[in-house]
Amino acid sequence: MDPSPAAPSPPQPPGQCRNWLELPRDVTESILLRLGAIEILTSAQKVCLLWRNICKDPSMWRAVDMRNPGDFWDMPYDLETMCRHAVDRSCGQLVDINVEYFGTDELLNYIADCSSRLRRLRLVSCHSISEEGLSEAAAKLPLLEELNISYCSYWSLTKEPLEVVGRCCPLLKSLKLNSKGHRRPYIECDEEALAIAENMPELRQLQVFGNKLTNDGLLAILDGCPHLESLDLRQCFNVNLTGNLGRRCAEQIKHLRFPTDPTDDIEIHDNGSSDEDCPSGFSDIDYFSDDYGYYEFSGDSDYSYYGDIIDYGDFYFD
């Protein structure tokens, strides 16, 4: 006969707070894992000795989320130093890292040197990462399966770093290569599309938001990536999905986003330019001005920040 179920815990007296230190360790770990790396290093690990010990466990750093608002002038932390510390704490177990705005070639290669098991790398609006830096890091990441290099440059990548990624990361299944979409001028470029088609045959998911590829580039991707299941072409205004190409996409791709589909579910990183007058997320005037001629982007492009060395508080230990 099954034992009787345990009696429910008596209600706490009014005004009595729960002692969070009495939670099982695995529950506390689960709660802390929901915080980003910045919150853990600046706040959570300073709560008590128990939390500090949990926050130093390498298993807590298999995934490092360094998302931040990008407002470096008001941020009292040196994010690059903080990110290196988080990578060190993983003790080689890091498999997933998300870096926004502050990534550099030096930081990217530090991550690659310390994390050969890395499977997911997300670099968003990291304008200090060069094509050479990306290529050098990719050569050290043979297990990489997901790569997001969106909004990382004010110009399109050339084919060389994408070719290196394809050759050195044969397990790559997901690629996001997003930029801000523009209708004018009518620039067509299939270089990135051809590099993807010729070097990434195992892709299952591809997002090329705001890319300048044409129908020829899209056709090459369909031919070169036979396992592709999800394709996001939003704001790819040089693509015309009519006729045979449209039918080919409908037959081959399970989840297809069209160039004019809504963009409500995607965060467009414009780094300071305003889209108040462009609710669809793109602007005609960022690329072309009758008065001032041709511009790649409007706004200041210098986002380098060199803050003070971070103070992790009384509970910071190496």
Rank of each mutant, 00 (worst) to 15 (best):
H127K: 09
C83A: 15
V164L: 02
I310R: 11
L123P: 14
V165R: 03
S274D: 11
M1F: 10
D311S: 15
L134P: 12
L21P: 01
G103F: 00
T260S: 14
P76R: 11
Q12F: 01
I97N: 07
A250N: 05
R257L: 15
E191K: 05
S43D: 15
P13Y: 02
N178G: 04
D290G: 08
D57Q: 14
F288S: 02
L256G: 03
G217C: 10
S130L: 04
K180L: 15
E202K: 11
S283Y: 05
L35E: 13
A112Y: 01
Y101P: 00
T158H: 05
E145V: 01
E145A: 08
S304V: 05
A44F: 07
I129N: 04
Y154L: 08
S59F: 09
M1E: 11
R62A: 14
V124C: 11
L218D: 03
K180E: 12
A138Q: 00
R25M: 15
H227A: 10
L177E: 06
E267A: 11
L219S: 05
Q252I: 02
D232S: 11
Y292P: 01
Y151G: 06
W73Y: 13
A193Q: 04
L23N: 04
M60C: 13
N215I: 04
P14E: 12
Y295Q: 09
R18G: 00
S128D: 14
D286P: 00
F317E: 12
L162K: 02
N238F: 06
H127D: 02
L144M: 13
P161L: 05
I31P: 07
L32M: 14
C91L: 10
Q207G: 06
S153W: 03
S4Y: 09
D291Y: 14
Q12K: 09
I309F: 01
L171V: 00
D302L: 05
C236F: 08
G272N: 04
P185I: 08
P3D: 08
G103M: 06
N215Q: 03
E296N: 11
H255D: 15
A112Q: 00
I54W: 02
C17D: 09
S90E: 05
D65G: 08
H269K: 06
T158D: 15
A220C: 07
E191F: 00
Y151K: 11
S30Y: 15
S90P: 07
S289N: 12
G210P: 06
R34S: 07
D71S: 07
I149T: 06
R34N: 11
S30V: 02
D290W: 13
R119T: 08
L94K: 01
Y306Q: 08
L107D: 04
N240H: 12
R204L: 15
I196R: 05
D216E: 12
C249K: 09
P76T: 10
R234H: 10
R120H: 14
F72T: 02
C152Q: 01
E80H: 01
G103T: 06
L118G: 08
L233W: 14
R204A: 03
S30T: 06
S9H: 02
I266V: 13
D302V: 13
T242M: 05
L157A: 04
